[in-house]
């Protein structure tokens, strides 16, 4: 079992890290989310199942854990958010203007906020599809029939667009 767990870790760590990064935008937090997913896997009955089912389970757990972390981070850091972004940019050493980097981070946060406001399945479907996962993989991760992915995706994209555009409108009003 140890060998199999190691193989699963090596095979899926990279893709899970990319998924978590999209939600959390930070390496350390994304790694924490991935490690948490594997920690849960080590105690989960799904580990006895086939590799495809384990992969689907890992993606679902990792995405949910990432959004949970995003929510708790927003609560605890809300007051220091802007100052923190500025400081992070100032100390990053990147050859970009501070203003441009801050705007980019703000744009990313707006997308993440809109994503986090969607129902759980919709946001996971949207994240997976626009990360390059195929319908069969999304169906497995969300425990859906493949034929239902299109419906869920269409609803998720419409809801995302509405939520995102409303937030932009609110900011302007």
């Amino acid at each position: 079992m140890d060998d199999r767990f190691e193989q699963l870790y090596q095979r899926h760590r990279g893709e899970l890290l990319r998924l978590a990064w999209r939600v959390l935008a930070g390496r350390s937090e994304a790694e924490d989310a991935v490690q948490e997913a594997f920690l849960k896997l080590s105690r989960a009955a799904v580990l006895e199942r086939g590799d495809g089912e384990v992969a689907a389970w890992l993606r679902r757990v990792c995405i949910n854990d990432s959004f949970n972390r995003l929510r708790s981070r927003k609560r605890s850091l809300a007051r220091h958010e802007r100052a923190g972004r500025l400081e992070a940019v100032r100390t990053s050493g990147e050859d970009v203007t501070v203003a441009a980097a801050v705007l980019r981070r703000e744009a990313q946060d707006e997308v993440r906020t809109a994503l986090a406001g969607l129902p759980e399945r919709q946001r996971a479907c949207l994240l997976l599809r626009h990360s390059g996962y195929r319908y069969a993989e999304i169906a497995a991760a969300l425990d859906l029939a493949v034929g239902s992915v299109g419906v869920l995706l269409a609803r998720a994209e419409r809801a995302f667009r509405t939520t995102y555009e409303e937030s932009q409108h609110d900011d302007l009003s």
Partner: peptide, 21 residues
């Protein structure tokens, strides 16, 4: 959602990709 793409030069992402079905 393209804005959320992780950086390409992040070494942690060089682990094997998910196996397509």
């Amino acid at each position: 959602l393209l804005l959320l793409a992780p950086p390409e030069n992040e070494p942690s992402f060089t682990a094997p990709d998910h196996a397509p079905v």
